[in-house]
Simulated scan of single mutants.
Amino acid sequence: MLDPRPQSQIITSGTGSGKTECFMVPVLEDLYRETQQTNSSLTGVRALFLYPLNALINSQKERLSAWTTHFNGDIRFCLYNGNTPNDLKAQDRQRQKNQPQEVLSRKLMRDNPAPILVTNGTMLEYMLVRQADAPIIQQSQGKLRWIVLDEAHTYIGSQAAELALQLRRVMQAFDVKPEDIRFIATSATIAGAEAETQLKQYLARLANVGVEQVAVIGGDALFRAYPK
């Protein structure tokens, strides 16, 4: 995934088999390399994670916090949805100091955008048109290089068409080209070479990239029986 020439991937495996780790580890490695090159913390969105449900967004909080805590605020993330407060209350300010890896309010995200933005399609749409969120995009232009589409198989018909158009608007707003982005799509099931070809075409059309730029990574969960 970290090849100098951006390659998009479809990760297909069963629930609980480690799909998230397949893209999260390369994303964090990429961001860590940048902090080492610049010798500074990162400002501006580099990785956009799109989830169809708020429950899925919230489920990533503990994992992201654990993986980014050792970077001491150089690599941060923000869960940006309808539950994200506009500003912090007095009792939450100490928690923000104790958790520099997570941006806890919209104001802080607008002032200093985290490199990892976790959101949903509706909030992303608001971000693209809402003047209050313009600083996030302005400080992120030219920096976006990862877009993760979780549960990609749920986007069918008109939903897939709307997502494709939204991704094109994201490219324009963030001032990047599709061929420079690593698109990652996760899917719970896949079977056979024919399905693999169809999935490549599916992501290529969503992302507006060539089919040759898309690869499929498949796997199965391995459960070991331990002696009692």
Rank of each mutant, 00 (worst) to 15 (best):
A188N: 04
Q37T: 06
I57T: 11
F49D: 00
E151K: 04
R106D: 07
K143M: 10
L56R: 01
I217N: 09
L124F: 03
V214N: 02
R130V: 09
L28V: 14
H70T: 07
V209F: 02
Q60V: 06
N39K: 13
E34I: 11
G44Q: 08
V45K: 00
T69Q: 13
N72P: 03
A164T: 15
L222D: 04
A188M: 02
P85K: 04
I75A: 09
A225L: 11
Y202R: 13
G192W: 10
K177I: 10
A225Y: 11
S140M: 12
M109I: 04
D74A: 13
T35M: 13
Q60R: 13
L203D: 06
R33I: 03
H70L: 08
A185R: 01
A134L: 02
N112D: 15
L128H: 01
P178L: 12
N83V: 06
V45T: 09
R93N: 06
N86G: 14
D133Y: 14
P26C: 09
D87N: 02
E151L: 08
R46D: 09
E29I: 10
N58C: 06
G121H: 06
P52N: 04
R76H: 05
D3A: 14
E62M: 12
L165N: 11
L28G: 04
A188E: 05
Y202A: 03
L42Q: 09
S40G: 09
I156H: 01
A215E: 04
I116D: 01
A47P: 00
E34F: 00
R95H: 12
N58P: 00
M171Y: 15
A160W: 08
Y126V: 12
L42A: 10
G219E: 11
V25D: 08
K228A: 13
Y126W: 07
L149H: 03
T186V: 01
N208S: 14
Q159Y: 08
R182N: 03
S105I: 05
V118M: 05
L50D: 10
R169W: 02
E212I: 03
F174V: 01
T43N: 05
L53W: 03
V118Y: 09
Y226N: 11
V170P: 00
A132F: 08
Q94D: 15
E212K: 10
Q139W: 01
V209C: 10
